[in-house]
Amino acid sequence: MTGEKRLHRKQKREEREFYFFISPWLMGFLFLTLAPMLASIILSFARWNIITPPEWVGFDNYKELMHDQLFWKSLGVTSTFVLSSVVLKLAASLLVAMFLNQKVRAIGLFRTIFYLPTILPIVASSMLWMWIFFPNGLLNFFVTKLGLSPQNWLANEKLALPSLILMSFWGFGASMIIFLAGLQSIPQYLYEAAQIDGAGWWSKFWNVTFPMLSPVIFFNLVMGFIGSFKVFTPGYLITDGGPHYATLFYVLYLFRNAFEYFNLGYASALAWILFFIIMAFTLLIIKSSPLWVYYEAERR
């Protein structure tokens, strides 16, 4: 047997082993991702309530969606939520991370405190905020202290969504931790060089911190966007989509169609629209990234 052949056989064995090791993922991909994805495409062109046989309706689900006021309403509600919560959280988490990065004592303690709200089970934090928003709850106590009139936060069509945004803002620590790690990995000599060049704090931020941190900002932006677009539990638990659909999040509307009305085809169409929205925005952020994200490795 020649050496080459033996090598070939060894390679083949290693390849077989590779597939054995990755089989848990591969099976999961085939049976829990790919197959359901294909099924979901087909379903989105059908009408089915799981009991009676499915009925092929072509593009009807998608056409119906275009005239469905609740679909547009839920898109609007979700966009407002995503935009405000992502912007607020990113700004606050970057700011706090920069404060914490100033050689602060007890940095570990602060980091823990800021991260704490994100550890809470969403059901528990929903219950807590329901109680805070309650007509004679804590928020109204502070509001009246400030000399404003108390509100019925969750029952008011104008205030319900901002209330849920406030609740989600409480969890900005998740991206803060990532910013902090990013800030800590910026080499100190860059700041020293800027200092020698006579740079002020703004110039240091704009010319050193921002470009060096831009990949992390990019990561947090994409993750924050995807995560908040899929928001469900607060709308389901706290406000039940109300009042008058003011907190009807997209995924809540999808959930209702799928598991409350059993419009499985219609809900699948909703899921695919969600997929395309998330894809489109993620691609938009990725495509725009060369304009503002600086990858050090690429410059070398």
Binding site: Q11, E14, E15, E17, F18, Y19, F21, I22, W25, L26, F29, L32, T33, A35, P36, M37, A39, S40, L43, I226, F229, K230, V251, L254, A258, L264, A267, S268, L270, A271, W272, L274, F275, I278, M279, T282
Partner: peptide, 27 residues
């Protein structure tokens, strides 16, 4: 472990992270 499709499959694995669970939830 080395295999010809290794890096492609790994990319696929990462790509599935982007997929919203709602798409596969109903089927």
């Amino acid at each position: 472990l080395r295999a010809r499709a290794s890096s492609k499959l790994f990319f696929l694995c990462l790509a599935t992270m982007m997929l919203p669970g709602q798409v596969t939830m109903i089927p």
